[in-house]
């Protein structure tokens, strides 16, 4: 269960880490098995950013497992945040920006749940979120930052941030509390059975997040051999001992993108925006019925997205490597 203190005491952080089996062992499992690593009330950090490398499949599994009271943080939230609110698995989101994407305007689902007081959206600056994970990854309790001070973003966070004076220069800075999530969900292009993860393209906050978290569930487009990892160790971004579960999930970020593999499924995103425009709550619940509760498996979910859409997204995705 999540601690009540804002910053996990250092020895408690180390105790939790010491308890984890960090040996080189295989940890491949199903989405359903991996979902059992998440407890009600956990702080769950999501890798990726906006519509990129979102751990959609793992969120899908958590929704189907009917998790409760999760606090969920991410650099920027897109439609997965709407799924969190709509399904009720989380009523508390910590992020810097929350909408489907700029081209669809302000998320009606986010507006509906936050304006009615049904759900909470704690707003931090983008860099502050990143530095919180980084402090967590560094094993220090706070990180000083020069942004957010003077703004109402700072003021609204109350006691979660503190103004400090630099002991060397006397400058005023803001101290950000370290964030060590109970669990991080990260989707990558490839990983081996031990959890060595290689990710292509944009890294977002995933590496700090993996180091900071007390557990990591890795979903991957493809499981590769440990030999192939060892042939290019410079490409490995997340080491196996931070990882607790590895799940192979092709198209695991759909309808969002996975760098070099597929771009966002724009038609699907358009339809979601349209469906949630008039009655956001009914719209998102229908979406969950159709795409989250309805399918019998992840492949069944992909069937619903449609072969033509998958082909189109994949063709656009691969084009990044074609000059």
């Amino acid at each position: 269960m999540a601690e009540e203190t804002l910053v996990l005491p250092h020895l408690e952080l180390r105790r939790r880490t010491a308890e984890r089996d960090r040996g080189l062992r295989e940890k491949v499992m199903s989405l359903e098995e991996a979902a059992s690593f998440v407890s009600d009330g956990d702080h769950v950090a999501l890798g990726g950013c906006t519509m990129s490398r979102t751990p959609t499949a793992m969120i899908w599994a958590l929704v189907r497992a009917k998790k409760k009271n999760l606090t969920v943080s991410r650099s920027i939230m897109s439609s997965e945040g709407e799924v969190l609110y709509g399904s009720g698995i989380s009523e508390h989101v910590i992020t810097s920006w929350f909408s489907q994407g700029i081209v669809w305007g302000v998320s009606k689902v986010m507006r509906h749940y936050t304006e009615s007081g049904q759900a909470r959206f704690d707003e931090w600056s983008h860099m502050s979120i990143g530095l919180r994970y980084r402090a967590g990854a560094m094993g220090i309790p706070y990180m000083p930052v020069r942004s957010m001070i003077g703004s109402d973003v700072n003021a609204r966070l109350g006691d979660e941030v503190k103004e400090v004076t630099c002991p060397f220069t006397g400058e005023r800075l803001l101290a950000l509390p370290a964030l060590n999530p109970d669990i991080a969900l990260i989707h990558v292009q490839r990983a081996d059975a031990y959890g060595n993860a290689q990710l292509d393209g944009l890294q977002f906050m995933d590496i700090d997040m993996a180091m900071a978290a007390n557990r990591v569930i890795l979903t991957t487009e493809q499981i590769v051999s440990n030999d192939s990892i060892r042939r290019a160790p410079d490409q490995t971004r997340i080491p196996f001992f931070t990882v607790d579960a590895v799940v192979e999930v092709p198209y695991g970020s759909a309808p969002h993108e996975c760098y070099g593999v597929y771009e966002p499924f724009f038609n699907h995103m358009d339809a979601l925006a349209e469906q949630t425009k008039k009655d956001p709550e009914a719209g998102i619940k229908k979406y969950l019925d159709d795409f989250y509760y309805g399918p019998s498996s992840w492949s069944d979910y992909l069937d619903l997205l449609g072969a033509a859409e998958i082909v189109d997204a994949s063709r656009r995705g691969r084009s990044i490597y074609n000059d």
Binding site: M51, S52, I102, V103, M205, I207, Y259, P264
Partner: peptide
């Protein structure tokens, strides 16, 4: 690009780096 966070943003870029690090260049 639909936002500053998808692969279209990286076309012919000189470097990609973590979000926190690119923002730290401002600081």
């Amino acid at each position: 690009p639909p936002s500053t966070n998808e692969q279209r943003c990286t076309r012919r870029a000189n470097m990609v780096l973590p979000i926190t690090d690119v923002l730290l260049l401002l600081q």
